[in-house]
């Protein structure tokens, strides 16, 4: 219990056949924070989390979780962490309530206490009306909430969340984010794997960007974003004929190279700050080019990758992690 760090990983390696899924990952995660692990599919995020959660034995390197070695003291680690996996770690063939009772009993509650705890959690996660339904009939958002409830039947000191909002609609995603914030507010450390930059930005205190099994950047969200600018301004015109004029004007105002999009009336341009983007839009309007619409977008993971590695995030090895 003396270690000040929640996670301390040194050169973790995991190979599957010829693939080095994780190729020397170092991590230092302080207690009580949300630490984001950001990367595309196949980058090694899931494999890393599975090693730290003692589900996979590393082929090289070492790691301590809450002061305990993940190999020689795996059982101690299991007593302090909980895992919410990519596939939603709940039992489809049981009801929501049975899932929570099952976990309560496995964590040592007597049957009656386990029932009380299950009902308490169902209410807290807004699932009381679905308590008696089989989980296979739940929506994606409900499954995730149940999954998170199952992870805190006993409050863990460290929670592993593997892509908790992948495939969720925006409303469910916001609910999941609220739950994560509430958890952290009570002192739980969260290791959050995600492929969404805005999710890491919303939740994480620090972020490690991982690519091809290696950490390629580490820092606060602000530091990371500083490396890729503020995102892009997207403009759509009423008349495709005027696009070249608009491109020239934007290039002049924003001092960047506009991208012509597939839509013949649309174009986009990277921006450094929102003020200048607003000015550029005003310029377009004054020039009477016939503006149909405009929007700002956050920098995408692709842009972060492009900035950090010089190549876009690739999906080539998507299946490696899942199959593992």
């Amino acid at each position: 219990m003396t270690s000040p760090l929640a996670i301390e990983a040194n050169g973790l390696v995991k190979t599957f056949g010829d693939t080095r899924a994780v190729d020397g990952v170092d991590l230092e995660v302080a207690r009580g924070v949300v630490y984001g692990v950001l990367g595309p599919n196949g980058a090694g995020k899931t494999t890393t989390i599975r090693m730290l959660a003692t589900l996979l034995r590393p082929d090289g390197g070492s790691a301590r979780v809450l002061g305990h070695d993940i190999v020689s003291e795996a059982d101690d680690v299991r007593g302090l962490v909980s895992l919410t996996g990519q596939l939603a770690s709940v039992d489809d063939d049981l009801t929501g309530r049975e899932n929570l009772i099952l976990l309560g009993r496995l964590l040592g509650f007597a049957t009656k206490q386990a029932r009380v705890r299950a009902d308490e959690l169902l209410v807290a996660f807004g699932l009381q009306d679905a308590a008696g339904r089989l989980v296979k009939n739940y929506s994606g958002g409900m499954r995730r909430r149940l999954d998170l409830a199952a992870s805190i039947v006993v409050t863990p000191e460290l929670m592993f969340l593997d892509e908790p909002t992948t495939g969720l609609d925006p409303r469910s995603r916001n609910q999941v984010w609220d739950i994560i914030r509430a958890l952290v507010g009570l002192g739980t450390t969260v290791l959050l794997c995600t492929q969404y930059l805005d999710e890491a930005d919303q939740l994480a205190d620090r972020i490690a960007v991982i690519d091809s099994g290696k950490v390629i950047a580490e820092g606060t969200p602000a530091q990371l974003k500083a490396s890729v600018g503020q995102g892009a301004l997207h403009v759509r015109l009423l008349d495709p004929e005027r696009r070249d004029d608009a491109a020239r004007l934007l290039a002049g105002t924003l001092d960047a190279e506009p991208q012509l999009e597939a839509d013949p009336a649309a174009l986009s341009i990277r921006i450094e700050d929102a003020e200048r983007a607003a000015e550029a839009v005003a310029e377009l309007s004054r020039a009477d080019l016939g503006l149909a619409g405009f929007s700002l977008s956050q920098p995408s993971l692709d842009e972060v990758f492009l900035a950090l590695t010089g190549h876009p995030a690739e999906d080539a090895e998507t299946d490696v992690e899942v199959a593992a």
Binding site: G79, L107, G108, F109, A110, Q113, R117, E120, L121, V123, A124, F125, G126, I152, V153, V154, T155, Q175, D178, I179, R181, A182, L183, G185, L186
Partner: peptide, 17 residues
């Protein structure tokens, strides 16, 4: 939500294994 959550979270004591 987070109030209900906080209540649910703080009442979770760890029983013996």
């Amino acid at each position: 939500t987070s109030q209900a959550l906080n209540a649910a979270l703080s009442s979770a004591t760890r029983p013996p294994r």
